[in-house]
Simulated scan of single mutants.
Amino acid sequence: MGGFFGFLWNQLFFKPKPLEASISLEGKTILITGANFGLGLETARELAARKPSRLIFGVRDVKKGEAAKELIQKTSPTVEIDVWTLDYNSYDSLVNFASRVATVDHLDYALLNAGIKMMEYQVSDGGHETNVRINHLGTSLLSLLLLPTLQTSAKVTGKPCHLTIVSSEGHFWVPFHERTAPKILARMNEKETFGTAMQRYYTSKLLNVLWTRELASKVNDKQVRINTVNPGFCYSGLHRHESTGVIKIVLWLFGWTTEQGGHCLADALIEHDDSHGEYLSLQRTMRPSDFVASEEGKAVQKRIWKETIALLKEEAPSARIPTFDD
């Protein structure tokens, strides 16, 4: 797993399966970010068919979110669907969204799927490189802000809640030279570190894996079970910033459909009750990259955690970030 030929083999011969028809989500409340298109939409469609009581969509474009809601309710008319504004590139939006989520009776499952893949260096409004700002900082802050609601819900329902963060198999394939810098995240803002092709996107997905593992180590799995998932290489709007055409050829040869990718996300979110802090791929628990599993990787993981917490406290002072015993 993680090698290029292994990747091609899995893309060609592994076929993701939908959730078992016997699985019912009756009475459950499920949150999905980026649910208005691509993998998020397909995941929402599959979960809606299992009749949860409520789906919450966190989307940047409410108009597209409403269109996704209408599409899903054609086949799952009994499911209540809320479409709420969420912009990962805005700390205020993340804080306001999480505050709104905190008003629900309970939240059983949260899938943090929203993300971006920028192929060229770009700086976000806050001065961070865009892939890092949205995929890592935005995702990390939202995971922290949702955690108290998930923990409270677990006490209400008497069952562990699930938080799943979407990462990528690409975390195996990046050198992550920035890990040796005195301040890793600050170094990743510098243009000369951006790399070529999809390197920076995959590095941001590596940060997702490291963050998930460290967050899980600080949370009681009897309350919230936290994992990260590789959805596979799929046709998706994620590739919209790819301009060379190479991705289209590779997708045509090896890509899974968005429906198949949705199967992987639904499986990771709903199944695997015995997993916590794990990397899920091919619809099972798998070992992450050698770097992540190494002693160096574990040390970098803690550095990323401390840098991220410090940065979020400074840049998002209105956010109520939970405290942890380190």
Score class of each variant (00 low, 15 high):
L282P: 01
V59K: 01
R284K: 02
E278H: 12
L25D: 01
L145M: 10
V292Y: 00
T130P: 00
A114S: 06
A181V: 14
N227A: 13
H239E: 11
M198I: 09
K69T: 14
K64H: 15
P322T: 07
Q223D: 09
D267E: 12
H171G: 12
L86S: 05
E120G: 13
Q151E: 08
V123H: 14
Q260A: 12
G245I: 03
L47Y: 01
Y91A: 03
N189E: 05
G195T: 06
V101D: 11
I249Q: 09
G237S: 09
R287M: 09
L265C: 05
R240D: 11
Y202S: 06
M198R: 10
E46C: 06
I32T: 12
N230M: 15
W84K: 09
R100Y: 02
K28L: 03
E192N: 05
E26G: 15
T285A: 10
L210Y: 06
V292P: 13
G115F: 00
H136C: 03
F7Y: 05
S294G: 06
F5S: 06
D82A: 10
F5W: 09
W173I: 10
T164A: 15
L265Y: 11
I32Q: 01
L311D: 08
G237R: 06
H239V: 13
S217C: 08
A21W: 04
I72H: 01
A102F: 02
D82L: 08
T323Y: 08
Q223N: 13
I270L: 11
Y201W: 14
L141M: 12
V300Q: 10
E120V: 11
L145K: 13
G127S: 11
T257I: 04
G3Q: 15
L25K: 00
S204V: 00
M188Y: 00
K218H: 09
G170C: 04
T164G: 13
M198Y: 11
Y121W: 12
A21R: 09
G262Y: 05
V174A: 11
K69L: 13
Q260T: 09
L147I: 05
R179L: 07
Y91C: 04
V79G: 00
E296L: 02
V250T: 07
V156C: 11
A102V: 07
E42F: 03
D221G: 07
D267Y: 11
L112M: 13
T85P: 13
G115S: 04
P322L: 04
A266E: 05
E192C: 02
E178Q: 14
R287N: 10
K302M: 08
G40P: 02
D87R: 00
H171Q: 11
R45V: 02
R213Y: 07
H162I: 14
K155E: 13
G245W: 13
V104Q: 04
V62N: 06
L19P: 12
F7S: 02
R54E: 02
E42R: 04
R200M: 07
Y91R: 01
E315N: 05
D290H: 15
E259Q: 04
G65P: 08
E314Y: 14
Q283S: 06
S243T: 02
R187L: 08
L31S: 10
P317L: 04
V156E: 05
S289M: 01
L12V: 08
F5Y: 12
S167L: 02
I30R: 06
N89C: 00
F13P: 10
A68W: 00
L253T: 01
M118H: 09
V59E: 12
N96H: 15
L146H: 14
V300L: 10
I165N: 10
E190F: 12
S53T: 06
